[in-house]
Design a protein around this nucleic acid. Structure first.
Length: 141
DNA sequence: GCCAACGTTGGC
DNA sequence: GCCAACGTTGGC
């Protein structure tokens, strides 16, 4: 049976809280602490092998890396008992050749529907295959 | 530092 | 169930 094509996602984090370089150093991290229902639903929809753009918010405002979902959603160990938050395990794939800045994303009409622009506070969001292709192109391959 | 967007909380 | 108040996020 052929492997299912991976879906693409984007996660947002302030580099001061947890940076891409920290993920590279850790080699794997549990993406815990998401406390928003919409973001949680996106986490739940992630499958092993899906690819995840890593965006540094606030101080940098740029996509800096590409990660992969090592294991799909499982209960978030940092959640209070009785709550139903989930997390996924992310591993770094590679650092982008060139970071893709928020300005560059805004300037590209092909990315105008990107959830990052339309819902600035959402921290986990889907990226269409077409949008992923554009992001990778802007990142220099 | 400011402010807009938006999610949550609590009074009614 | 509505909505004002409040807290947080994140761009500028």
């Amino acid at each position: 049976m052929a492997a299912k094509k991976p879906s693409y996602w984007l996660v947002k984090q302030e580099p001061e809280a947890y940076s891409w370089s920290q993920l590279v150093a850790d080699t794997v991290t549990a993406w815990t602490g998401v406390r928003n229902f919409q973001a949680r639903n996106h986490l739940r929809a992630m499958a092993t092998g899906d690819l995840v753009f890593f965006y540094h918010s606030v101080s940098e405002k740029q996509v800096v890396g590409l990660a992969r979902v090592q294991a799909g959603a499982r209960p978030d160990p940092t959640a209070e008992a009785g709550e139903e938050w989930v997390c996924v395990d992310l591993v770094p794939v590679r650092t982008l050749n060139r970071p893709v800045t928020l300005g560059a994303i805004k300037a590209d009409p092909r990315l105008k529907e990107l959830a990052l622009l339309r819902q600035s506070r959402l921290s986990v969001m889907p990226v269409s295959p077409q949008e992923a292709e554009v992001l990778l192109e802007l990142a220099g391959g």
